[in-house]
């Protein structure tokens, strides 16, 4: 059981690796950005994994029910914020990508680098 209790962190690490690899190894801008969303998604998983408590439930207090155990509300609040920050970054990056495509005619970073070097 001890190992299963750490499975979330293990998956977090693996997702982070896949995300970072995707960002670093791919020169296609859209692909890198998808990698970036995986990278951020992994961090959401890390935070939310800390909120779970055995026998707990979502932190919504019901009247008349005694001795309830609630999950930790704080990581949830933080990740709500982080998700919105993530989509904002993605939207902005995609807008830049569209403009790059219009200006260069490609979204492959290596080709763009070549084109800029010729100038």
């Amino acid at each position: 059981m001890a190992v299963l209790g750490l499975y979330n962190y293990f998956i977090f690490a693996v997702l982070l690796m896949i995300g970072l690899y995707c960002i670093l190894a791919r020169t296609n801008i859209i692909k890198s950005l998808i990698g970036l969303t995986i990278f951020q998604g992994a961090v959401f998983l890390l935070y939310i994994s800390t909120d779970k408590i055995d026998g707990g439930t979502a932190p919504i207090i019901q009247e008349g029910v005694e001795n309830q155990i609630f999950a930790n509300p704080l990581p949830q609040v933080l990740i709500l914020t982080a998700i919105v920050v993530g989509i904002s970054t993605t939207a902005l990056a995609l807008a830049v990508t569209v403009r790059i495509k219009e200006a260069y005619g490609t979204i492959e970073e290596d080709k763009i680098q070549e084109m800029d070097r010729e100038l």
């Binding site: 998604g41 959401f44 939310i48 994994s49 779970k52 707990g56 439930t57 949830q76 990740i79």
Partner: peptide, 18 residues
């Protein structure tokens, strides 16, 4: 997965936004 981890608000947000 967030829903299973008792984070209903986050699950809703991730589903709609992500």
């Amino acid at each position: 997965n967030f829903f299973i981890l008792d984070a209903a608000d986050v699950a809703l947000t991730e589903a709609v936004i992500g």
